[in-house]
């Protein structure tokens, strides 16, 4: 018999578990993914123990399978997060989130002279892996370090 595992947050039957979220980012992720709009049950766990990272947050969304595209948005604030799809209490897939090449509408351009800070424009950033200047704003064309770009 498998040893019983005590759940601090109860297991979900169907839906999505976002695991390995850096500690303190769980609530931000709920807002970033606009999880409230679906009116599903969402459970947040904050400060769980993690073998790999020491502490972590967890977000569970019942009866909603997030697509990789949706989940990848969180890579900017939670690069270590994993996306787990649960069906009938079984995990059917697990993948790491990956920052998409084009990031639309999540980030605020740090350049005060950029049009996105003057008019209602959806921001758009291109992400590239080379060097430390990762993020390029589509409008003002400036490059920024990922750590210098704030989430809106």
């Amino acid at each position: 018999m498998k040893p019983l595992r005590t759940f601090k947050v109860y297991a979900i039957k169907n839906g999505t578990v976002i695991d390995h979220i850096p500690e303190g980012k769980g609530v931000e992720i709920i807002d970033l993914l606009r999880l409230r709009q679906w009116r599903k049950i969402v459970t947040v766990g904050i400060g769980f123990s993690s073998k790999k990272y020491g502490k972590k947050d967890i977000v569970k969304i019942e009866n909603k399978e997030l697509t990789a595209e949706e989940a990848n948005k969180i890579a900017i604030i939670a690069p270590t997060a994993t996306l787990n799809i649960i069906r009938n209490f079984e995990r059917v897939s697990k993948q790491n989130v990956k920052l998409p090449e084009v990031i639309e509408g999540i980030l605020k351009c740090p350049n005060p002279a950029c049009i996105t800070n003057h008019e209602p424009v959806t921001t758009k950033f291109f992400h590239d892996e080379t060097g430390e200047l990762h993020m390029r704003c589509w409008y003002c064309e400036r490059y920024f370090k990922a750590t210098d770009v704030e989430v809106m």
Binding site: N111, A113, C114, I115, V121, C137, Y139, C140, E141
Partner: peptide, 9 residues
Amino acid sequence: HSIEGSARL
């Protein structure tokens, strides 16, 4: 225009 990205918009 003085604002960067204004032409793109």
